[in-house]
Design a protein around this nucleic acid. Structure first.
Lengths: 165, 165
DNA sequence: TTCAAATAATTAGGGGGCTAATCATTAGGG
DNA sequence: CCCTAATGATTAGCCCCCTAATTATTTGAA
């Protein structure tokens, strides 16, 4: 459950051995902190999902269906989740097996299309899990005051922008 | 390569449908921003690793060996990386196949023990990859001034502490 | 009208992790 | 001494996600 964190690597020791590096070790420490937190965060949500027999992908799929409240085609789901159709095929087949969703040829003419919808059981599970997850998200930020949250958001935004730019 | 991000889920729509929730939607937005950045960051490093035929686990293993400059037992590696021994077995077998490490019975009496060490090729690759990775880590922070980095670090620290507490 | 290109979904195969069960060796108490 | 318990490592089998190749269907243009 603890998962591998390359951010817990002895980077400073390795850095110290590099000939003529102009990198500030402090930057490495902060970056590793950030990466470690990233891993920890994602892991803690994954754990919460797992307690309900879910995974991040399953959760995302359920939320997507829940928000639409109408059946969706696998290709549509793949687009919304930002994953491949193959991934959706796998996700769907496991969730059908577990009784969370149903899967049938879509209404209408095109016989290539399928439609995915939550079962009652899936809806019930979503109704339990979603508030829990939102609660966990909100409690992430409770150590920070409102202005601090704004500051954090601004700093993260600038880091994120720096990635693509 | 884009990977699944449950943080890009229509949480607000789902939240809006919940009966009597006392959760501030803004908190959800900030938390999702944080989680999305987490995914993006880890993904961008994973991409960089992949360009050299590495994965986060392989990189972590190489750094661990590089920092020690001495052979390590698989169990020792597992402890340092925070993963199971089974995972190390898999990691090692792939890296031996690719000529990055060597793997032999350890010196000394206990014939259960093995020893893992970088090959020349592994060391060369580490010498190429490590500076690249450090550079990428450092450049994450270039959008921020020195005081801002301190601020960020403090905020992250408090969030992290809040997770366990 | 027919046939090639586009589109929906699936399959095949791979990598990275995990747990649980197993094998090999060593250590220790009766 | 011997036999059990502990320890190091591996195997088997699972899940999640990916890419590339394949199947089924529809569209559109010659």
């Amino acid at each position: 459950m603890s998962d591998l964190e390359f951010s817990d690597t002895p980077a400073l020791e390795v850095l110290a051995r590099l000939p003529r590096s102009d990198i500030d070790p402090t930057d490495i420490v902060v970056a590793q902190d950030l990466l470690r937190l990233a891993k920890t965060l994602l892991g803690s949500f994954a754990e919460q999902f797992a307690m309900h027999g879910l995974s991040p992908g399953r959760y995302a799929l359920m939320m997507t269906l829940q928000a639409r409240a109408a059946p969706l085609a696998p290709s549509e789901i793949a687009d919304r989740l930002g994953v491949t159709r193959a991934t959706v095929t796998g996700l769907v087949s496991g969730m059908v097996r577990d009784g969370l969703i149903v899967f049938a040829p879509a209404e209408g003419a095109d016989r290539r299309r399928k439609a995915v919808a939550l079962t009652d059981r899936g809806r019930e599970l979503a109704a339990v899990v979603a508030p829990e997850v939102f609660q966990q998200m909100a409690s992430l930020l409770t150590p920070l005051s409102a202005p601090e949250r704004d500051t954090l958001r601004g700093l993260l935004r600038r880091i994120e922008d720096g990635l693509s730019g």
